[in-house]
Design a protein around this nucleic acid. Structure first.
Lengths: 146, 146
DNA sequence: CTCAGTGCAAAGGATTTGCATGCCG
DNA sequence: CGGCATGCAAATCCTTTGCACTGAG
């Protein structure tokens, strides 16, 4: 956890931002979640967290490459630690409740995908930054009646 | 185009919905777009389209498996024809302006991805319906200054 | 006649922003 | 001191909903 904070602090400094208690708390909550969480979920683990501060800090953290925002079909956006800070992974997305779960794929397949996508991107004059590969379906809690 | 309308009509009937002029017009606009479009973009190609009707019809079409809604980081959601009606494909997503572009990948890779995802899903008690594999980056218009 | 479809107007609700204050460097 | 950080309140704006009217079968 100390390493994480050091890495985050470095990223914030690089953008002339401070690593305040609020931000440290947000990062710790995200690190502990081990899956993308919504702002209400974050607030649960943090008494007295004004929404505007939360959103504003998450936005700063996003611009500094510390947090990733995931906009799905769910009412709220989900937030997670950005990729250089956590291992590359993907998500299981529940089409019923919109919840997200982390999932890791074989490295070889990732490489194949990246190569193929890079080729397609070049053909379209597109400059890629990263890919997302999500599986949509029903989570355990939303299992469709068989 | 006739085939498309027939297929859409069948899906609507199955859900006890009519294939009205408005809905026919929406489907034709989406078919011609050849990329996911926002509601304002749809309205451009259609004079006198009340928003509430558009949203309501898109919702009906979505429930009937005719339209897919894509919620990204852009202000507006994007809509496209659902997959059984158009070929399986993925998207180039511009991280700057949020625009979407269709992209087709090698079938062999798709199969590999599906197999790997199915395995991961099973391990998590997740019932998959489909995958999404998007490439994020900068579109031609938003090319970052080098 | 009946019931889905339509459209205007108003509501809903996640997220953003204005502004005054607090606080770290 | 200067400028970011904070938080309350209000605004924003995409999308949904209430309700009365229309039209297809």
């Amino acid at each position: 956890m100390g390493e994480l904070h050091a890495a985050v602090a470095r990223r914030l400094e690089r953008h002339d931002h401070r690593y305040t208690r609020r931000r440290r708390h947000l990062v710790e909550t995200l690190a502990r979640a081990a899956r993308p969480v919504t702002l209400p979920q974050i607030a649960t683990h943090s008494d007295e967290l004004p929404q505007s501060s939360a959103y504003r800090n998450l936005e700063v953290l996003e611009r500094c490459g510390v947090v990733s925002r995931i906009a799905g079909t769910a009412d709220h956006a989900h937030f997670e630690l950005a990729e250089p800070l956590v291992e590359h992974h993907h998500h299981l997305v529940c089409v019923a409740c919109g919840s997200l779960e982390d999932v890791h794929l074989d490295q070889e397949l990732e490489t194949l995908v990246d190569a193929e996508l890079a080729q397609a991107a070049a053909a379209a004059g597109f400059t890629p930054t990263h890919h997302s590969l999500d599986l949509h379906g029903f989570c355990q809690d939303c299992e469709p009646e068989q």
